[in-house]
């Protein structure tokens, strides 16, 4: 079976004003795979992630060069519907950020924004998304109480359910477990293994062990550049580049 490339960047440069934060990044993401982006703080992982669903558009004075594609479509094509793009490419952030609404409404939110009115369809999708986010059993009896009453780990899984509700093709995760305790982290990691059956996942993590545990491929960034990308198994046993080796063995960072 030929591998399907879901997202690809080619010669991608990104600038915050004069500052070049990404330098010539060429990288492909296969469908139904988890790719981890690792590298020292400030190397451009989040910037790269935000390019993929055009979150950087919101920051004034920024500029993109090169090409980014979702399937065959150019993500930066003029006139592209950015809201529709973000429906296809969901995002989960470092800190869980549920809305101050009920659990149900948090998950239903994206559907309503996208114009779904059918009450039954919404209900079905909320349940399905909570199940996929491995949260259903814990919240099924209190769907209409406030999301803010959930624990941090539950809130993060709720945010994942919210991202999944609109049936995205790609899910971007920026250090999704860094604010969570070890048990909640484990739940998120297990969840990632499940989710890749249906979604393509790109995850930024500062934990090498986490990258090793959850991803199929790992890309190492350093100072705005892509230094090495390979199968995770190879990256963590036999990296080819000396900088990668030094970083993942903790000799710098």
């Amino acid at each position: 079976m030929a591998k399907q490339i879901k997202v690809a960047s080619e010669g991608l440069n990104f600038y915050y004003g004069e500052f070049k934060a990404l330098d010539n990044i060429t990288l492909e993401f296969e469908e139904h795979q988890v790719t981890a982006l690792i590298g020292p703080s400030g190397c451009g992982k989040s910037t790269y992630l935000r390019c993929i669903n055009r979150m950087n558009d919101l920051i004034p004075g920024t500029r993109v060069e090169g090409r980014l594609t979702l399937g065959n479509e150019d993500i930066y094509a003029p006139g592209l519907d950015v809201v529709a793009l973000r429906r296809r490419i969901g995002m989960v952030f470092q800190k869980p950020n549920p809305f101050p609404k009920t659990i149900f409404e948090n998950v239903a939110y994206g559907l309503r924004v996208n114009g779904v009115r059918d009450k039954q369809a919404i209900e079905q999708q909320v349940v399905e998304s909570l199940r996929r986010a491995a949260l259903w059993d814990e919240v099924k009896d209190r769907l209409h109480s406030s999301a803010l009453g959930l624990s941090g780990g539950q809130q993060q899984r709720l945010c994942i359910a919210r991202a999944l509700a609109v049936e995205p093709e790609v899910v971007l995760m920026d250090e999704p477990a860094s604010a969570l305790d070890p048990i909640a982290t484990q739940k998120i990691e297990d969840l990632i293994h499940e989710l890749k059956k249906n979604f393509t996942i790109i995850i930024v993590t500062h934990s090498m062990q986490q990258a090793a545990r959850v991803s199929d491929r790992t890309a190492f960034f350093y100072m705005g550049r892509l230094i090495e990308v390979d199968r995770t198994k190879t990256m963590f046993t036999q990296p080819k580049n000396k900088q990668t080796e030094d970083y993942i063995t903790g000799r710098f960072g």
């Binding site: 090498m208 062990q209 963590f236 046993t237 990296p239 080796e245 993942i248 063995t249």
Partner: peptide, 9 residues
Amino acid sequence: DQPMAKDLR
């Protein structure tokens, strides 16, 4: 210590 790469080897 969950060693990696050359440390693991």
